[in-house]
Design a protein around this nucleic acid. Sequence first.
DNA 1: ACAAAAGTGTTGAGAATACACCCATGA
DNA 2: TCATGGGTGTATTCTCAACACTTTTGT
Lengths: 243, 243
Amino acid sequence: MKAEKILNISVDCVVFGYDVNTKSLNVLLINRFLESKGEVLVDDYVLTGYHVYTHETLDETATRVLKELTGLTNQYKKQFKAFGNPDRLTNEKDLLWIKNEEFNTRTITIAYYFLLKTEDVSLNNGNDKATWFPVNDLPILGFDHNTIIQEAYEDLKEKCLSEPIIFKLLPDKFTINDVQDLYESILGIEIDNRNFRRKLINKKYIIALDEKQVGVSKRPAQLYMFSLDIYNKMFQKNYLISI
Amino acid sequence: MKAEKILNISVDCVVFGYDVNTKSLNVLLINRFLESKGEVLVDDYVLTGYHVYTHETLDETATRVLKELTGLTNQYKKQFKAFGNPDRLTNEKDLLWIKNEEFNTRTITIAYYFLLKTEDVSLNNGNDKATWFPVNDLPILGFDHNTIIQEAYEDLKEKCLSEPIIFKLLPDKFTINDVQDLYESILGIEIDNRNFRRKLINKKYIIALDEKQVGVSKRPAQLYMFSLDIYNKMFQKNYLISI
DNA sequence: ACAAAAGTGTTGAGAATACACCCATGA
DNA sequence: TCATGGGTGTATTCTCAACACTTTTGT
């Protein structure tokens, strides 16, 4: 089957990556650079994205886009919103940029976010100029991509409280404090270590391993893993009405 | 500005209506009927929806679609997902139907749901053959609209636990038992009346009115209203990690 | 030995749950 | 007066929040 682009429908991907060492929640962005006659016309950043092909599902488009940028497959992804304002690609730099590209100014984009570990991505081999930026310190962004990132981030903040997606951002083996640091990064809050620790350790799907950290310069911490199997078996929706 | 359709992008609307008398959560559907030479080719139901116009935002399309069907504006709406599988409009009856319509078999639809009261909709004047069906007893549906409705319903079940959207489905003045009945309808669970009542009455944004039900054949119940103002003032996100 | 981060317990308050009967009203 | 749905109270359990010091380890 010939791959044929749908020119007015795209998928954009907010790739969230957590760096457990620097405790930083990052977004992967691509430099958009255009010059003409020695003059820099456009120099900012955008999300990775591409047109949907006629034979693809939207999920497949997202998976393909991530794979082409990072080589990764089987990462957690979520379609969280469609963006389709008529003016979403019509500021000055966007118009300059689109002039060189084969797509419609009236394009609707289906936005996804991915959750993964920064360490799983090697940026050297890419021909795209991809870079990680902390989610709270983003550069100038093209199109409506700032809006898209903020909405993805809001959704992530909400979802990480009720679904075990936090572990998609952490290595398979993690410490309790890693989890706490991650929650604090995402939510921008402080959490009491004793209460948090007790709560997490009491969950049956948080499993203590026979291992401790290695290569740390201070007291090594106990390592744990998350068992999705146990989580799924235990978990039943509790209809706690909390309006 | 000339209204020009985007032929491969549509908005579909799951219109949820609650009937406080029959305690039934309903979905508004349109009969899709096609015959040729006395033979009935298609006779099933679909959601209301339409193409996006080039000058419209997606939200505006949804608002327009609802208005054209029901006359209503300013109803609660939520964009909840985009559906774009290549085969979503390609079963036999869909193809027959599309033959008569001006749209692409590779159409992506942005799905919204609306929350309103069935009593606010008058179905007589409509030229569309619109009918309410209980969400748990739907007829045969065209396209992928069964999937869309089920996903809308899942989202509603989840959201009604954490956001005060339940009141969009109820009249301005309601009884505590109305709210309980509605939760029980949506979630398919039973709730203890004493505990529920206490909990709700203790909320400052649930305001007891100086009124009781009239025209009921038994003891009339106290009426209450919901104050969104008070809710918004009081409400602050509590970061309760409940994984 | 010391610096640094890991790890540990208790208490009080508020919320959730379980549970069964009386009350007010219209017919 | 009676049938119907409206409305009420208490005891128990559990979870959350607040709070500061000791332990372990590598250097």
